[in-house]
Design a protein around this nucleic acid. Structure first.
Length: 287
DNA sequence: AATTCTAGCAACCGCGGAGCG
DNA sequence: CCGCTCCGCGGTTGCTAGAAT
């Protein structure tokens, strides 16, 4: 199958967006809403491909986009989410209100990667970045070229300070919103924050999601390893039916056959939230 | 002062999945 | 079920500007 190009490249602008182009796109989307990216350039009279419009809108023009430096809280969250999810930037960004996947990805590649490798970013380099931003900002506001200057979007916009991210896990199961009680029966924590499974109540495997995070996302995470390390034969979760297959709901008898923990089970939303955010006991749990 | 190096970030590209007829 | 279009994602590229030489 031959994939058609997203748009004809001929006669289209490439590279940095100008303020004029931004205004056109912003106006159009304010009136008509998002979506139908392929038709937007034509309808709005932009010499850009739909993809480019989408990217520009989602990364820079959307009104709820947060500008300014990544806070320490956000950085911690990115690190932990990356440990959990890997390079799934859109999922990570989804947990950072106002941050885009592109921004998170860039921040990771340019800053956090080095930091975690042990290279401390030099102070001079940080100030370098700030200087750059300032200069960019000045340039874009003072540019007198007859061509509309490309925007230095980030530097142009005021950095808004917002309260640190509060994770809201909107749990769903199989696409429907889950009752929070359902999460609670998954497992609970002991005094050390260690999960205790009670999955006898959960007799069927299923793909479980917490927000957009599917349980399979956790398979290589420390969260999951912690769960595994802390399950003993005394825990209910390892006793499940021998006749239950891993594919269908409902399960089978009750013959207490041990099942591997790689099987999907319900988990506590609270526990997950703690793991993602502030629970130092959990964070420091040895794996 | 000029040149080269380096870092940061915006934008592009290609692929895969979802949805629809 | 198949073919097709569109959207969204993640990797990569290229430009810009400060630092270093």
């Amino acid at each position: 199958m031959v994939r058609t190009p997203c748009c004809s490249k001929e006669g289209l602008n490439k590279g940095a967006w100008t303020a004029h182009e931004d205004q056109i796109l912003r106006d159009y989307i304010n009136i008509h809403g998002e979506g139908k990216w392929r038709t937007i350039p034509k309808d709005a009279g932009l010499k850009r491909c739909g993809k480019s419009c989408r990217l520009r809108w989602l990364n820079y023009l959307k009104p709820d986009i947060k500008r300014g430096n990544i806070s320490q809280d956000e950085e911690d969250l990115i690190i932990r989410l990356h440990k959990l999810l890997g390079n799934r930037w859109s999922l990570i960004a989804g947990r950072l209100p106002g941050r885009t996947d592109n921004e998170v990805k860039n921040y990771w590649n340019t800053t956090l990667k080095k930091k975690l490798r042990g290279d401390q970013p030099a102070e001079s380099k940080q100030s370098n970045t700030e200087k750059k931003k300032k200069k960019k900002s000045n340039k874009s506001t003072n540019n007198n070229n007859n061509k509309t200057p490309p925007l230095s979007t980030k530097s142009q916009l005021e950095a808004k300070t917002e309260t640190p991210h509060k994770l809201k896990a909107e749990a769903t199961t199989n696409g429907r919103v889950a009752d929070s009680k359902v999460h609670q029966v998954g497992f609970k924590c002991n005094d050390n924050g260690v999960p205790i499974f009670k999955s006898r109540e959960v007799v069927y495997p299923m793909e479980y999601s917490c927000g957009e995070l599917l349980l399979s996302d956790f398979s290589d995470s420390d969260f999951w390893k912690i769960c595994q390390n802390n399950c003993t034969e005394d825990n209910d979760h390892i006793h499940r039916t021998s006749t239950t297959t891993t594919t269908g709901p409902g399960g089978g008898g009750a013959t207490n056959t041990r099942i591997p923990l790689a099987q999907p089970v319900l988990f506590s939303e609270d526990l997950f939230r703690d793991w993602i955010r502030d629970d130092h006991t959990f964070r420091n749990q040895s794996i």
